[in-house]
Write a protein that binds this DNA or RNA. Structure first.
Lengths: 112, 112
DNA sequence: TATATTATTCTAAAATCATGGAACTATCGA
DNA sequence: TCGATAGTTCCATGATTTTAGAATAATATA
């Protein structure tokens, strides 16, 4: 993988709001305050969490959790997709997001 | 560690030029083209590589390798320091840069 | 000590980014 | 079918970032 791909991935994670969104998908939950994050992700509001595999009505939930407009959330999702970190597909009103685990792992390898 | 710290670290690595500088220190070498990077970092110009522990006349070398002004290189170094990724100290004309391995590892833990 | 070299800081300009509103498309459900 | 809901795209704007030149400070060496 080219160096520019790595910087693109880091850029996708460099914005705090976007990182929060990424974690919602990665850890399958979200925290309104985006407080302390570890392998055990502490929830503030379980209602905006989804089950493994997809975020149902993702945007509305995320808009509720974070103070961002739909349009902004959409931009952030696109950025994460462009970096290859996630893959999204819409199935009616269900928005399925998946982590591209290989990409996450390539970052870890890169830093090893 | 706070979420904002992680995004700060990712931001430091999000710029391709800065990532290249980081790798010069991390892998203790540099590549003018910043080509393919892996655990085995291939050199284009060994002359601008340093020995383990410090980069002697770092800026001049890096300016030669990359097409950036001194002032820009300086800014990038500062950014990497601010993110906590590296520690630099000047010792006369020798500029010692060290990686903060714990910080690099905290990123890997974060992504685990 | 004077001069050359090295790195930092100030300032400014161009480029990129984050964000939201409005208009738009797609889908659900009454 | 019609209204409500979900997400996207276009467009504009304020904020941040990247970059370099000039001035400055620190250091080495002749």
């Amino acid at each position: 993988m080219e160096l520019s791909n790595y910087s693109k991935i880091f850029k996708a994670l460099s914005n705090e709001q976007r990182l929060k969104i990424f974690l919602m998908i990665y850890k399958n939950c979200c925290s309104p305050e985006g407080a302390v994050v570890g392998s055990e992700f502490k929830l503030k509001d379980e209602s905006c969490c989804s089950v493994k595999g997809g975020l149902e009505k993702a945007f509305t939930r995320i808009c509720d959790c974070m103070n961002l407009s739909r349009s902004t959330i959409s931009h952030h999702f696109k950025e994460l997709q462009n970096a290859g970190l996630i893959t999204c597909e819409r199935e009616g009103q269900t928005y399925r997001c998946k982590i591209n685990q290989e990409v996450v792992e390539s970052i870890m390898d890169f830093l090893k």
